Simulated assay, not measured.
Amino acid sequence: MKLENLSRRKKLVLSILLDVIGMITFIDLFWAPISAYIMTRMYNGNKGKIAGAVSFIEEIVPGLDFIPSFTIMWFLTYVFNKKDNQEPITIKVKSN
């Protein structure tokens, strides 16, 4: 299963779960690269690479584990980004 092909809802649930794992993980040296890799797989292109780097830094720096980087990225992608947020409009036309 490719992570970038998950539905919005499944990505949100996965994001919250991964943030919880990141908050309770005491082995940040182990979790930081895994977190960064998963982030780059969930989001394509440069935004995934940047988010992966931010996630890595957030996990590796002591005291920053409380930041929900996966959930923030989900909101940036699906709530605050107007370009990706546009749903197709269906117009029904009656014919005589």
Rank of each mutant, 00 (worst) to 15 (best):
Arg41Thr: 02
Met23Ala: 12
Met73Asp: 00
Val61Gln: 05
Ile24Glu: 04
Glu87Cys: 04
Ala36Met: 11
Thr25Ser: 15
Phe26Ala: 08
Lys83Arg: 13
Lys83Asp: 12
Lys83Thr: 10
Arg9Lys: 14
Leu18Arg: 04
Val93Pro: 00
Lys10Pro: 00
Lys47Val: 07
Asn81Phe: 03
Gly63Val: 08
Pro33Trp: 12
Glu58Cys: 11
Leu17Met: 13
Val61Phe: 10
Asn85Asp: 13
Lys94Pro: 02
Val54Arg: 03
Ser69Pro: 00
Lys10Phe: 11
Ile72Thr: 09
Leu76Tyr: 03
Ser35Trp: 01
Ser95Pro: 00
Ile34Thr: 06
Ser95Leu: 14
Asp28Glu: 13
Lys11Glu: 11
Thr71Asn: 08
Thr71Cys: 08
Thr40Lys: 02
Asn5Phe: 12
Glu87Arg: 12
Arg41Met: 09
Ile24Met: 12
Phe66Tyr: 14
Pro33Val: 13
Phe80Arg: 04
Leu18Lys: 05
Leu64Tyr: 07
Tyr43Asp: 00
Ile34Leu: 14
Phe26His: 07
Ile91Asn: 10
Glu87Asp: 12
Leu76Asp: 01
Ala51Asp: 02
Thr25Cys: 14
Ala51Arg: 02
Glu87Lys: 14
Thr90Pro: 01
Phe26Asn: 07
Lys92Asp: 13
Phe80Cys: 03
Lys92Pro: 01
Ile89Leu: 13
Met39Trp: 02
Lys94Phe: 08
Leu17Glu: 06
Leu12Met: 15
Ser7Asp: 15
Gly22Lys: 04
Asn46Gln: 09
Val54Gln: 05
Asp28Gly: 06
Ser35Asp: 08
Thr90Ala: 12
Gly22Val: 01
Asn81Arg: 07
Ile67Ala: 09
Gln86Glu: 13
Ser15Glu: 10
Glu59Cys: 06
Phe75Glu: 02
Tyr37Gln: 04
Asn85Lys: 14
Phe75Pro: 02
Trp31Gly: 02
Tyr43Pro: 00
Ile27Trp: 13
Ile34Lys: 05
Asp19Gly: 07
Asn44Ile: 00
Arg9Ile: 14
Phe56Ala: 01
